[in-house]
Design a protein around this nucleic acid. Sequence first.
DNA 1: TATGAATGAGAGTTCATTCAT
DNA 2: CATGAATGAACTCTCATTCAT
Lengths: 210, 210, 210, 210
Amino acid sequence: MNLSPRERILQAADEVFGRVGFDAASTRDIAEAAGVNKALIHYHFKTKDGLLTAVLEGYYGRLTDTLRGVLLRPSGSLRERMRDLVGAYLDFLHANLSFVRIVQREAGGGRHVDLVAERTLPLLALGRALLRERYPTTHGGAMAAEQLLVSFYGMLVAGFTFGPTLARLLESDPTSDAALDQRKRHVAHLVDLIFDVLDRGDGDDAEAAR
Amino acid sequence: MNLSPRERILQAADEVFGRVGFDAASTRDIAEAAGVNKALIHYHFKTKDGLLTAVLEGYYGRLTDTLRGVLLRPSGSLRERMRDLVGAYLDFLHANLSFVRIVQREAGGGRHVDLVAERTLPLLALGRALLRERYPTTHGGAMAAEQLLVSFYGMLVAGFTFGPTLARLLESDPTSDAALDQRKRHVAHLVDLIFDVLDRGDGDDAEAAR
Amino acid sequence: MNLSPRERILQAADEVFGRVGFDAASTRDIAEAAGVNKALIHYHFKTKDGLLTAVLEGYYGRLTDTLRGVLLRPSGSLRERMRDLVGAYLDFLHANLSFVRIVQREAGGGRHVDLVAERTLPLLALGRALLRERYPTTHGGAMAAEQLLVSFYGMLVAGFTFGPTLARLLESDPTSDAALDQRKRHVAHLVDLIFDVLDRGDGDDAEAAR
Amino acid sequence: MNLSPRERILQAADEVFGRVGFDAASTRDIAEAAGVNKALIHYHFKTKDGLLTAVLEGYYGRLTDTLRGVLLRPSGSLRERMRDLVGAYLDFLHANLSFVRIVQREAGGGRHVDLVAERTLPLLALGRALLRERYPTTHGGAMAAEQLLVSFYGMLVAGFTFGPTLARLLESDPTSDAALDQRKRHVAHLVDLIFDVLDRGDGDDAEAAR
DNA sequence: TATGAATGAGAGTTCATTCAT
DNA sequence: CATGAATGAACTCTCATTCAT
């Protein structure tokens, strides 16, 4: 629908960054994919880093809006909100595969860690606060809020970051809508299991007693 | 100590690839880190790709040995073997941080997906076979073997791949031994939860009935 | 003067290729001779091969125009046209020494044979057609059109391709105007001799009878 | 027949130099073709230039023996000796295609001109001396001895140096025995023509009078 | 806004050569 | 005699970036 050159560059960068990674992507590739001159990228985004920042800022803006809306919804139990959040997160990743792939590459180290960390931290901090408030037992120990968040994050993201490899094991395409549905039900199930435990209130001590 | 130049190159490549990623790593960086001439890399490994392959082959060889040993141990219930496997995997990743970071970057797409996929598939296939044999209900549905494997994988890996970002949220260093211990207990707990469900035998139907 | 950078690159490449040969020529040499940045060569010509192609295309364009003009001139006997062609060819080579030297190196094998062959063939085919039409006896045998063309070509080119060596035998510089004049008269003489034979009509049979 | 490594290197170098040219040939290629270690080349021939020298010295030794034998044969007219020489030369080139291709590339300039020139000059000087002695009119003018030698050389060599290109025009393979025979008869014919002229004694003056 | 031309820096790779064994 | 290992220099080519227009 006749996007502006600036928008076309952003879309092209998103696609190329997601496909081959930031470092393997060249501004020439992106300019060609966008149908614009290489120099125009620098006119709009100053540097290649600036282009990555712009792409990620766009994603984080939309993601944060989505998740904050779910997490901070006043009504509903925390469990329900977590279930919704898991669903919303999976939907978002499913609809923005490049985003997962870019983040997965940059979150593990390298020059852009901060870019990712700064935008991720508020969400993690919010999640941790909610968990600790509702379930005081999630301070320290085996079911510590931090551990839960890491596990949730891992479950949510694994299906996508590992997609190309899983596609070879599974008979079906892991990026299909059917696969998304199954994954959502699975993760929701696990979330329920975990909240069952939290509600039962057995934290570390119970665990240690096993 | 007093490693051969070839070995020094492998170690340097491992460190640099893990820190900045394959594409951002230059052969000059690696050669300098190894204290050898740039050309020696090509003498021993032909290309930069060949160097990555050699690094990963080393890791996969050791990892496969470790995990196969645990998984195929004749005695012990599947639950116990899974618990051990989770522990062994976390130990391995903890001791080989570069490996996680390299794999996380290359598993999501790009020119080296196959390198990762080919070595990962056998392990996944083995895990799936064991789960399906012992728990026939893990065919299809919300608790399908594939879903479980993906979730397990996500939980195991997330703490490391997300490490640099988590380090900013957590008060403690996520790569410390203490953090590893806590993470191991947490994941073991989750594994237990899941096997409890599997042993109770409620698969999709029970889930759907909720 | 005040040539464009692109043109300066072409001239520098011509000079360097002619002097040391394509393989011994480095893009750095050429860039320096042209007074431009090394990368500009690739900006304009994509690869070093592309640069050679561009140089040769320029030559072949001008040469073909020149020779076609002479060969296809409607008036004048074939003998006269051949004499003119020989003169025009020698003039062209004399004015474009690099061209002979480049072609001589690439025509004998290696990666660029096709580049030379494709542009030379039409001229050879034209010459053969004219000879066969006018002198049917030049089909097959000792004075076959192909043999004549090869001999003509050898005579024309030898003085230049062999130049540096001949310079040591001859007292005078073989690239001087005087040398060119003498060579032109000599070759014209030989051409006359040959056409005398052709006009007398004794082809193979006469020859065989000797 | 179980050649010595030194001999195998020489043969391999000959083949590779002839095929791709000295500059495009790498010692690795040659070593592989010879089935020996790269370093052995330097052990036997000191440098890559030394290897080329050795290859060419071998050729020039055999060629000089062959041609001197024919040229200096006491009996027989000069014409007959020239005819024999032409035949012997063509035979030699036919049997040593690499030689022509190497010489053609190096005779036109570059770092090895001297190597070629020094070995070629004696032959040229001898030919010139014989011509001048027998035909005093070949001093200066259109039929000067030097011109004749250049033309002879061009005719002799053209079929081979131009081979790969001619192969596309001619229906038959220019390196076949049949093609060699035809070429020999053709060149012999031309030589006869020229000696007819010389014997008739009309040099420049006759020519100029036409 | 948008571009073609131009550049310095550096990429991966190959080179002929050396040397200890 | 022969080799595997090692190196400094140079290679072609690509990079992100700049600038005049």
